[in-house]
Amino acid sequence: MSPHRVKHPVDNAPGPGGERIQGAVVRRGDQHAGATTDERLLADQTEGWRHTDPWRIMRIQSEFVEGFDALAEIGPAVSIFGSARTSPAHPMYQAAERLGAELTRRGRAVVTGGGPGIMEAANRGADLAGGVSVGLGIELPYEASMNRHVNLGINFRYFFARKVMFLKYAQGFIVMPGGFGTFDELFEALTLSQTGKVLHFPVVLFGRDYWGGLVDWLRERALADGYLAPADLDMFLVTDDEQEALRHVLGEGAERA
């Protein structure tokens, strides 16, 4: 394992000494549930679904209401995404912290998934700079959902409700190196931009070495085979330059890669 990557801490795992946050409910020790709420929602239920699934609508509705209410007054915001596995010694952690601080100085709230790694770094930068540091946590089977640098946090049970909050309350994304969760948020934003569901939504892929292979594949296969239009590759900027990333996501002008 890379010296810059860290495993999820044992004390974040459910079970004795760990904790799981399910919406407003905190479960520790032997009280943790065996399955996440999303897992139960998506489980194959051959009997009884007509009696259980309609009632879930009330819980889903409550997540949207709580999210809309809590975030309505945060003002202009930028979301920063990236791996939960990135250690404080990693250059990307340090870059995310600087970006979070600089966004605060430029009058933006910083929104992350509220977890460790890159998310913690961006929240730390915003928090220590005196800004609005937002964490949109999610119930997971292996980690606590909120780092200590979040000063406005919401815990979600459902990924889809959380994703709406990222897109509704942020005016752009800075996407640091990460895994499947990071890819999910990235391609959700690009799809909504491509289909005209959101307008003028700048996206920055920070880290040329990390994202370069993906961008090459999009250009050499997806675009070349006709699955993308040339304009689709203009929907994001790839950069290693923090000031260029800030200019782009804040709409101050930057050339695309």
Rank of each mutant, 00 (worst) to 15 (best):
E102D: 09
S79D: 10
A101G: 03
R56M: 15
S87Y: 09
A129I: 03
A89N: 15
V65S: 05
L103T: 01
A72L: 10
M92S: 04
E66Y: 05
E73G: 12
V65E: 15
L42Y: 15
E39W: 15
P16K: 14
R20W: 03
D53R: 12
A109Q: 00
I118A: 04
Q61H: 14
R85S: 06
T104W: 01
E102R: 13
Y93V: 02
L42S: 11
L99D: 00
F68H: 13
M119G: 08
T104K: 04
P76G: 08
Q45W: 13
Y93S: 08
E63T: 11
V111A: 02
R105I: 06
E73L: 13
D53L: 13
A129F: 04
G117W: 08
G23S: 14
A84W: 03
P88G: 09
G117C: 10
G67W: 08
G75M: 09
I57V: 13
A121T: 06
E120L: 00
S87I: 09
G18Y: 06
W55M: 02
E63C: 05
A77H: 09
A33S: 13
M58I: 11
E39N: 12
P116F: 08
M119L: 03
V25G: 01
Y93G: 07
D30R: 04
I21S: 10
A72G: 02
H51L: 11
Q22W: 03
P54L: 02
E39G: 08
I60P: 07
A70H: 12
T52K: 15
V25H: 12
T86H: 07
G17M: 10
G23P: 09
A96R: 02
L128V: 15
V110P: 04
L103K: 01
I60L: 13
M119R: 05
G115C: 07
S62N: 13
E66F: 00
G115Q: 11
A77Q: 06
F68V: 09
P76T: 04
D38A: 07
F64T: 08
A121L: 09
G107M: 07
A33P: 12
E63V: 03
R27L: 15
V111H: 07
I80P: 03
M119C: 05
R50W: 15
A95I: 04
A35V: 14
D30G: 07
G17K: 07
